[in-house]
Structure formats: C-alpha cells, structure tokens
Design a protein around this nucleic acid. Structure first.
Length: 559
RNA sequence: UGGCGGAUCGUCUAACGGUAGGAUAGAGGAUUCUGACUCCUCCAGUCUAGGUUCGAAUCCUAGUCCGCCAGCCA
C-alpha cells in the first residue's frame, strides 16, 4: 500500500487521498442518482461503474441507489423498475440502500423553513417570464425581485400556504436569496420550490409543492452521508450553489461534489430526451430496441455485463471532451464472447449445393467441437447430407485470386466436414440467377488435409434437411454519421434507414431453436448472435450483437 | 463581448519539474479446418507563441480552439 501505484483516474486519486488523510472519518460513501424519467443508457453505465466500482474497491466503501424523483410530471414507476433491473444486470448491488429523493420531502420542507427563518430564502410572486427578465443575461447582472425583501413572517406564511394549496400552479416559487448580480447565473436567486398539482409516483397527492434538483440534491447527499458526490460536467456551475445550500443548514455530513465528463459515443445519441423521442415516434421498437444505446437495448442485442464494464474501464474517467469510437465497444464484446460463446453454423442467405458424389438420401453424423480452443465446451453432432446450403457470398463464378472461397471448378473446405469441388452452376434460365451448385466431395478429407494440394478456403454450411428455418436481424449504426447530435432538425427523421436488416429464410443448426441459451452463440464466420425475445421454437429469431473482424472485407475494398 | 471547465498518437487515457507510456484503431508478418482467435513487428501525440529552469506536457505570460450555463428540467 506504500507503493505509489499509477492512478486509475483523478477521482480515484482524490478519494485515495481523502481516505489516507482520514477525511470523513475514513468513510467512503457514493451514490448513483438517476431520475426515473427514462431508461438507463451506456453513459449511465459509466457513472454506475464509477460510483459502485470505487465503493467496491475500497474496504467499507458503499454506494447507494437513489432515485432523483423531484419532478413528478416526468417520472414513472416503469422507469424505477427498469433502472433497478439494469443496475443489477450490470452486476452491482445497492443491498438495502435504495432511496428516493421523495423519501426526504418532509426533511426538505423543514430545511426550507430553516432557510426562510435565516433570511436565506423568500417567496417570489414573479411569473416565469418575469423571472427570466429579472435574471439578466450572461453578460448583464440581474435585478432584485420586488418580493426579495419580504419579512421572514410573511415568507413563512406564504410558503406554508403554497404547501396548503392556496395558490394555483406556478403562481409563486420559493427562491434562495443569494446574489442577483453573480456572474454565475445559478446563484441569481434560483428557485427552490415550485407549485405543481401533479400526482407523484410515490407520494401521490401528499404534496402540491416540489423541490428543485439544485435544492434537493445536495441535501439528499448530506442526509445519506455521501462523502463523494460524483456527477457530470454540466453540474460544475451548480457546485457553488450545492455548497451554498449546505453551508446555510445544520446538517452533520458534508458531501463534496466532483464532476467528470460524460460519455459520448460515435453514431448514437445519449440524451434521454432524444432517446425518448425515438421511442415515442416508434422508429425504434422500444427502449430495448437492439439498436438503442440503452442498457436494455444492449442486453437484448447480446451485449454482456462484462463487456460493458470492461468498456467503461477502458474509456477511463477524465474531464476532457471526448467522443469514443464505436469500434471500442464492439471490441470489448468480441473479446468477452470469443472465449465464452459456443460455436455453431448458420447460413443467412442460403445457396443450395447438391453433392452428386453422395447417394440419394445420404446422411452422416459429424462430431464438431463447440469451441476451437476450449475442449471443455464439448462437442455437438451435426448432419452431413447430400443437399446442403452455403452462404450465397461464399461462391463466385469467377473471382480475384485473393478470393479463397468456392469458385466454378474450384475447391473449398466445408467447415468440420469435407473438401468439395464445384462441377456445375445451375441458373434460372429466365433470370440468370444462380439457384444451385452441383459439387463432388473428396471422401478422404474428413479430419484430414487433401494430399498433393492445398485448399486454403473454409466455408460454413448447414444441412438442407437437418436444419431449421428462421430469422436473423443484422444491425448497423442507429445514425449514419459519427456525430448525430450535430444534426439539424427532427432527430427521428435522421435515423439510419439501414440500421436494421431483417433476413428471413435463414438456416440454423436444429439445436439453436431449443431453449436455454445463457450466452450468445458465435455463428462461425458471421459474428455473435443472441436469440431475440420475438423468437419461438417454430420461428427462431437471432440478433447479431456484433460481427467478427473481417479481413476479407478490407482486402476486397482495396481491390 | 460574463462565469466555469477543457485541450497529449486517428480515438480513449497515463505521466503530479527528470526516458511522453498503455489501450484501441491502422499497416505489415506468423499461425490457422472460422479471412475469427492468438502471436510478432511497425506507424503515430504534448493547441500556438514567448518566458522561468541544467531540464517543461507539467510552472509563468499572452493567445487560439472546444464544451457547459440565461428551466418554476435533471
């Protein structure tokens, strides 16, 4: 522990320093504070991994889950439920420490009266528009509200009557009494409480007034004795207010707010407002559409908690502006799944191959390994038959010499089976389309290389008679440009029309249609596929979580 | 032309006055019954201009560029 280990990030540095110096009596308490107004996305995963991660790394460290539910107009239990499911799925545990800002409505109200009594808050009758006008601008100071000098008694009376429902929504607010000339606009007498006749998802109709984020957040942190309140950079300007509020009140614990930069990812958007717009417009099938950057979308797509945690570890924590390459996320998934997922063969765009050197009705069992490097993953039986399907793109009538797959008159190995040679290409005379290949197989090439010649190519295949038909869904980026946030106009109309490609009539090994797959499969040479919710035994549906790295695609591009 | 924050390989991120390092991407090669995986090699960076210092990504000065803030959202 005396070693000066290289720091993980500046926040862990600060925490290590505080812990070493006995700040907060050596306690470490963090919190993950989502507002239940949408589903969690990968940006939240960054925050979750930080808050829960840092707590787990330090003896005695704790991380609370706290719903920041101070705005009932936007919040819903559906989101409360999904958030808990997602945090748990990511692998984190808040134990018995699940809180809500709404748990503190009573305390928050009492602290507000304390503020009023100290002359630090007042009831203001300005309308929202008037308040905006009084606030000034970025370069001009604001002006004091005409209600700023009300007496404590009058403020107390008015605030109690706000609570009692004597005034219509929006008629008055409780404001902090700070400094209308502050260069920091957040300090120009910000609103602390507003009147809202909206039922709250937990407190129902108990309250007609609701605290604002700025007022509630720091106090909630203090009530939970949070030591390090970690949030994103856009709250940096709010820190003076966070500190100001806690400075006025008699609260034993004193949290410290530290900000880090939020995650942005290429080819997607992260704002809940935009994601919500996509969901509402139905351009995506829901919050869990596999194209969405939501935790539930990634899960449905086939991402693993491990891969997302690893991604969050690799991107690090800093205050720098950043836009992470989408390729990094994919790399994390591939590297997790490569060692763990069983292999299988599937043909997405089937091309029929008849092996004439085999008798009619021929069928043989072949035992194939489920993983090329890991014997422990066992073997499975596949069926080699006279008629099989191969991938359309694995055959060319003629091709450049770099093409290692099947060509007219050429040889290729069928993965786990024999080397075949293409004798004849059968076309539909009316369309010219290739409908079938007639091939011969070399019976000496099962588990053995052909003698006297090299066969470089290996392609996957599936039996025409011992396979099941189903659907595959392939995904491309949700937006065609790396920075969709910069696009003008309605975000819904900017969605990449090629973000999903549905292929039906795909052929799978029969075992794939059966139940019980904990992890995505690797469809050899195609990528990692995860069975979708829409899947049925009669009609299996697989999502491609991510493709394999494709060297041939690069070669072909350069040709 | 207010305040706050940021700027290091293409990308993400270290270096806390003392050899600019890692990851990823890219290029090349080895291996291969997955053009996968794995392995090897290479390429590539301190925003600019001054200054302090034996020595500066780091400290100072002056700029430049980028982000956030004018909700009774969070």
């Amino acid at each position: 522990m005396n070693d000066i280990a290289p720091s993980a990030d500046f926040i862990r540095d600060i925490i290590a320093h505080d812990l070493a110096n006995g700040i907060n009596d050596g306690r470490l308490q963090t919190r993950f504070p989502p507002e239940p107004n949408g589903y969690l996305h990968i940006g939240h995963a960054k925050s979750i991994c930080l808050n829960f991660g840092v707590a787990a790394e330090n003896p005695g460290g704790r991380c609370n889950l706290r719903f920041d539910d101070t705005n009932p107009a936007k919040e819903d239990v559906e989101y409360v439920d999904s958030i808990q499911e997602d945090v748990r799925w990511l692998g984190f545990d808040w134990e018995d420490r699940k809180y809500y800002a709404s748990d503190y409505f009573g305390d928050l109200y009492r602290f507000a009266e304390e503020l009023i009594e100290k002359g630090k808050a007042y009831v203001c009758d300005l309308t929202a528009d008037e308040m905006r006008a009084y606030r000034g601008t970025l370069t001009e100071p604001g002006r004091d509200s005409p209600y700023r000098e009300r007496s404590v008694a009058e403020n107390l009376d008015l605030f109690r009557r706000m609570r009692a429902g004597e005034f219509p929504d929006g008629a008055r607010v409780l404001r902090a009494r700070i400094d209308m000339a502050s260069p920091n606009i957040n300090m120009r007498d910000p609103a602390l409480y507003r009147i809202r006749r909206v039922a709250h998802h937990r407190t129902g109709d108990d309250w007609l007034i609701y605290p604002t984020y700025d007022y509630a957040h720091g106090i909630s942190d203090a009530l939970e004795c949070v030591t390090h309140s970690l949030c994103t950079l856009e709250f940096e300007d709010h820190r003076p207010l966070y500190d100001w509020i806690l400075d006025q009140l008699e609260i034993p614990c004193r949290p410290r707010q530290i900000e880090f930069s939020r995650l942005s990812l290429e080819y997607t958007v992260m704002s809940k407002r935009k994601l919500n717009a996509l969901v509402q417009s139905k351009v995506v099938s829901g919050w869990d559409d596999p194209r969405m950057p939501t935790i539930s979308g990634l899960r449905r797509r086939g991402y693993t908690p491990e891969s997302i945690r690893e991604f969050c570890r690799l991107i690090g924590i800093s205050k720098s502006p950043n836009r992470v390459e989408h390729a990094l996320l994919e790399t994390c998934l591939r590297s997790d799944l490569d060692s763990r997922s069983p292999r299988t063969m599937a043909v997405l765009r089937p091309l029929k191959v008849v092996i004439d050197s085999l008798p009619e009705g021929y069928e043989a069992s072949i035992v194939a390994p489920n993983h090329p490097q890991n014997e422990a993953m066992g073997r499975r039986t596949i069926h080699f038959t006279r008629e099989i399907f191969i991938e359309e793109e694995d055959f060319r009538e003629s091709a450049p010499k770099q093409f290692k797959r099947l060509v007219t008159g050429g040889e290729v190995r069928l993965r786990n089976a024999y080397v075949i040679r293409c004798r004849e290409v059968v076309k539909d005379p009316s369309t010219g389309r290739i409908v079938e290949l007639r091939c011969d197989h070399d019976p000496a090439t099962l588990n053995a290389n052909p003698v006297g010649r090299k066969v470089a190519g290996v392609i996957h295949w599936v039996s025409a008679t011992r396979s099941v038909v189903g659907e595959a869904r392939l995904y491309n980026p949700l937006f065609a440009v790396p920075e969709p946030d910069a696009l003008k106009g309605d975000i819904v109309e900017q969605v990449n029309p090629e973000s999903i490609e549905v292929l039906d009539g795909c052929r799978f090994e029969p075992a794939l249609a059966e139940a019980g797959q904990p992890l995505p499969y690797q469809f050899e040479r195609l990528g990692y596929f995860h069975r979708d919710l829409d899947s049925t035994p009669a009609h299996p549906v697989f999502n491609r979580a991510v493709g394999l790295r494709d060297a041939w695609a690069k070669i072909e591009q350069k040709l």
